[in-house]
Design a protein around this nucleic acid. Structure first.
Length: 937
RNA sequence: GCUCAGAUGGUGGAACUGGUAGACACGCAGGACUUAAAAUCCUGUGCCCUCAACAGGCGUGCGGGUUCGAUUCCCGCUCUGAGUACCA
């Protein structure tokens, strides 16, 4: 019997499932290793060939680690709350839970066919009540915590209340959205319950606040910053506008510095670290207050107002020649003089008209308007005009900047356009008539107290001065905002909060989970309330209080799920202490880079928070991260010829000849195309309209055009893994996905080469079988050549897997099996090791051969990865080409002492060369891996 | 604009710390087996000159440099992809 992959794979998948071969125990003498995949959202379309790429890689690594003697945790689950199921529910009325369940079943079937070694007993689903009970529980912990800056960690809110009642705000150094709070312990005692709760809400790590949010009308919900791309929603591409709303937020900004510092401790791809760094956007500088100058047009009350600016270049403050406010800045209307009123209002009007996109596209032109007012530079008392311009953003820093044309190119352009002075403040030789000098070189001139200083001295001096004179202070600013947490949607975790007197309170912990109620429709109510408002008899404490109606965002459930896998069925805790102490954190995490500023950042935040409260041990959740590349679709086209009148005919011209015709490209299903050659019969049967299709061929073939696009149904370029498994088997699919190229690289899918991998597996199978397909192995001692072939592959595969270069190890397998086939090697000792080495890649065929070799079924996964012995790889002949002075390449017979790394004598094979070298003394002999490569004379 | 990644045959890609560039696979061409096809096996395959062989020349986006030796290191440029965007 030939290699019967279907039979083999079905049999072993059944065996693994019923014997729970990959069940992992938490207590083990072995060292632990945690291999995690980013769990999928179970969409209705099922898996295409790109999805399992990362899963195959992680499965290979998990299996390899088991062979290396580790206790490996390798689980899988579903991120099953989310928008598509809800959108589908709105259209069809079907409960999202039903859609989700059926999608999960499809996913599971598809995953099972690939032969992963997941421990399915640990499966999690974020939409299960048993799971989201703990998502809600973590929310409650966040609500009940504040961030103590002195301790640099989160603490229970009770310690804050303690401080308030003993010493008021005096000893409180906390992250809060209001740094003006100031009271005595006696005040605290006299505050009403409502007042107390209002104050505490400003410190809680999850809090309710009126804030500007990204509102997506089409989706009927708010979105987080990372869910908005260029002014449109990431899912669906609907327009997003800014809107003020009462919203739940997560105080992730409290962790900004730790999130930044932690990046230095993890083994992650640089681009992802870079993205997170930019997203957090730390900038060190100073905040300075400019007093307004008294002015006839302004009331004296206003002249006591100040404009606060944030700058990273306090050292250039003597060069300030104007201030700029964002058009939305609250002071704009107050400080605009009557003479300038029309100008300013006109400018604000223009700014409003510009859409978000226009504003981003138009970064070149400089625009602005003068308010007519002046501020006073606190350092030199000079008057500086106050302008407004849309290059200053209301949402960043203080919404106001100081303009220094000599030190900042944008300020320089602004000054040049509006004829504002450009003051030189550095002795660096730069012509300020041409451009600004943003460098920090040179000594300061025309700069009062910092004249003659260099950059760092100037910054230190000025920071001290502004603090002493109470006009500002050194400050660190972050670009990152707190994360909006509420969503006006149905299919998400209910927020475990009820309202009393307009203030939020947590429900009793005993009442978790707060179940998602049933509703008649999944749309907002007529009055614009979220869908949960439709729930009947859904309120807290015997109808006394109403529940929070928004639900949690998609990222809530995925921000802690790796802990749940450690102890998936626990009903008393999100995971037991023993399980967390043993598994600690994820050693290897594989997933797409699209989660760089979303999931990966939120997960690190929650991980740090849970650590602060003492529930977990590790500061970082994912030690090593690998981003698998995206698999793109490779679309094929046929070219329909139009007749003289431009009317389409039913004739199609091959790609190479299309220039001679007037034709249009039509997507054709890639599954009817092999090596870009169209299967004409299949095409005719594809659709009724093609039944009578005629073809203009080249060399008797119809060649299709090719384009790389996103893989999608509408482009007919989706390749389904099930079809390939049907034809070639799961082992071939697994190996081929790895063979395709480096894991991290994005690439278009191309099925063309899969035959090569399939042929390899057949060849491998045949090594163990004679021509009549009988299983035959010999018990003879292996020869040196056979051992060499074996140990070469042991070393190669081990090195390749350790550095996640799976594509090259597949190639090495092919070489090894070719060598052993040439040697007609069917020796048990060699083949047994070969099966072990190959099993992470092609587990089914290896399991089959393992048993045929007389070993116990199911034990292959825990066999020992063979030890590499370098002795087998030593060269025994020293006749090979060597170059002289890196130039000519000659065959030499050498006699040398390898230990001494010196040539004892050189015997030249060629007389001519001997002549050439006569009398020359080798200056240097270059060895590489014990071989002479080059002789320098 | 900024940041990062990349550019190697007809194609996907190898070459791990500089050391015989093009492994391995696809495709293509030729051959064996077959009535035939499929499957399988064998041979060839970077480009140029050459009937062919020997030999030679050119070759890792482009231009320089370091080195006995550069796909690999350095400088400058071109192009492609990704991220980000007036962040003060």
């Amino acid at each position: 019997m030939d290699y019967q992959f279907k039979d083999i794979e079905e049999r072993w998948q059944k065996f693994w499932a019923s014997n729970k071969t990959f069940k992992t125990n938490t207590t083990s003498e072995k060292p632990k290793y945690y291999v995690l995949d980013m769990f999928p959202y179970p969409s209705g379309a099922g898996l295409h060939v790109g999805h399992p790429l990362g899963y195959i890689a992680s499965d290979i690594f998990a299996r390899y680690k088991r062979l290396k003697g580790f206790n490996v945790l390798h689980p899988m689950g579903y991120d099953s709350f989310g928008l598509p199921a809800e959108q589908y529910a709105i259209q069809t009325g079907q409960h999202p839970a039903i859609t989700t369940e059926s999608n999960i079943n499809t996913y599971r079937k598809q995953l099972d066919r690939i032969g992963f070694s997941f421990d399915w007993d640990r499966e999690v689903r974020t939409s299960d009540a048993g799971y989201y009970k703990w998502t809600q529980w973590i929310f409650m912990q966040l609500f009940n915590s504040w961030y103590n800056i002195d301790a640099d960690k989160a603490e229970p809110i009770s310690t804050l209340i303690e401080k308030f009642s003993t010493s008021g705000t005096l000893n409180v150094n906390a992250v809060s959205d209001d740094d003006t709070i100031d009271f005595q312990p006696s005040d605290w005692a006299n505050y009403s319950e409502t007042q107390k709760q209002e104050i505490l809400l400003k410190y809680r790590l999850t809090y309710l606040k009126e804030s500007t949010v990204n509102w997506c009308a089409a989706l009927g919900t708010v979105l987080a910053n990372d869910e908005v791309k260029d002014g449109f929603s990431e899912r669906g591409g609907h327009p997003v506008e800014q809107k003020k709303m009462m919203q739940w937020s997560m105080r992730i900004t409290a962790y900004a510095d730790r999130l930044l510092q932690g990046l230095d401790t993890v083994d992650w791809p640089d681009p992802v670290k870079e993205m997170q760094k930019n997203w957090i956007g730390k900038s060190v500088g100073a905040s300075v207050r400019f007093k307004l100058n008294e002015n006839d047009a302004l009331s004296s009350e206003l002249s006591s107002q100040q404009i606060e600016v944030f700058t990273t270049r306090i050292d250039t403050i003597y060069g300030v020649s104007f201030l700029v406010l964002a058009p939305e800045h609250e002071l704009v209307s107050k400080i605009t003089t009557p003479a300038q009123k029309a100008d300013v209002e006109n400018y604000i009007e223009q700014t409003k008209k510009k859409s978000e996109l226009d504003r981003m596209a138009d970064t070149k032109s400089t625009s602005g308007a003068f308010t007519g007012s002046y501020a006073i530079n606190p350092l030199n008392g000079e008057l500086v005009p106050i302008w407004i311009a849309d290059y200053v953003l209301a949402g960043y820093g203080t919404g106001a900047v100081m303009g220094v044309p000599s030190g900042d190119q944008r300020d320089w352009l602004f000054a040049t356009k509006f004829n504002l002075p450009i003051q030189q403040i550095s002795d660096a030789q730069v012509d300020l008539n041409i451009q600004a000098d943003p460098t920090k070189e040179g000594k300061y001139i025309n700069s009062g107290i910092i004249n003659g200083m260099d950059y760092s001295a100037a910054v230190a001096t000025l920071n001290q001065w502004i603090e002493e004179n109470n006009v500002g202070k050194a400050k660190v600013n972050f670009r990152m905002r707190d994360a909006i947490f509420g969503r006006q949607r149905y299919w998400g975790e209910p927020i475990p909060v009820y309202f009393n007197d307009g203030l939020p309170y947590l429900i009793d912990e005993e009442e978790l989970p707060l179940l998602l109620p049933e509703v008649d429709k999944y749309l907002p109510t007529e009055t614009g309330e979220p869908p949960l408002a439709r729930a009947k008899d859904w309120s807290y404490s015997a109808n006394k209080y109403s529940y929070e109606l928004s639900t949690m965002p998609g990222w809530a459930g995925s921000s802690w799920y790796w802990f749940r896998y450690m102890d998936a069925d626990n009903n008393q805790a999100f995971a037991s202490k023993e399980a967390i102490d043993y598994w600690k954190n994820v050693d290897l995490y594989i997933g797409g880079s699209e989660h760089a500023t979303g999931h990966l950042l939120y997960s690190r935040f929650w991980n740090k928070f849970l650590k602060d409260l003492g529930y977990t041990q590790e500061e970082e959740p994912f030690k090593k991260l690998i981003n698998q590349g995206m698999i793109q679709g490779r679309s094929n086209f046929v070219y329909r010829v139009a007749d003289a009148n431009g009317k389409p005919t039913n004739t199609y011209v091959s790609h190479g000849l299309k220039a001679q015709y007037n034709c249009t490209a039509i997507h054709v299903d890639v599954n009817m195309v092999v090596n870009d050659q169209l299967n004409i019969q299949q095409f005719r049967n594809w659709r009724e309209e093609f039944k009578t299709a005629e073809f203009i061929l080249e060399d008797g073939k119809y060649i299709c055009g090719v384009e790389v696009e996103k893989m999608s149904k509408s482009k007919y370029n989706v390749v389904n893994p099930d079809d390939l498994i049907e034809r070639y088997g799961a082992d071939t699919l697994r190996m081929y996905e790895m063979f395709l190229g480096p894991l991290e690289q994005s690439k278009p899918w191309n099925t063309n080469g899969i035959e090569g991998v399939f042929k390899f597996l057949r060849k491998f199978w045949k090594l163990f079988h004679d021509n009549e397909f009988n299983f035959v192995v010999s018990n003879h001692e292996p020869t040196k050549a056979e051992l060499k072939a074996l140990h070469k592959i042991i070393k190669k595969v081990q090195d390749d897997i350790e550095r996640f270069s799976f594509n090259t190890s597949v190639s090495s397998f092919m070489i090894a099996v070719n060598e052993l086939t040439d040697l007609k090697c069917n020796k048990r000792a060699i083949l047994k090791d070969l099966v072990v080495i190959l099993s992470p890649y092609a587990p089914h065929i290896c399991e089959e051969l393992w048993v045929l070799l007389g070993e116990e079924a199911g034990k292959l996964s825990y066999a020992q990865f063979p030890m590499f012995n370098p002795e087998y790889l030593v060269e025994d002949s020293f006749s090979y080409p060597v170059s002289i002075n890196g130039k000519m390449r000659l065959n030499l017979n050498l006699s040398l002492n390898l230990d001494a790394k010196e040539v004892e004598s050189i015997v030249l094979a060629d007389e001519n060369v001997q002549k050439y070298l006569e009398g020359a003394i080798p200056k240097k002999v270059i060895f590489v891996k014990g071989r002479i490569i080059n002789i320098v004379i």
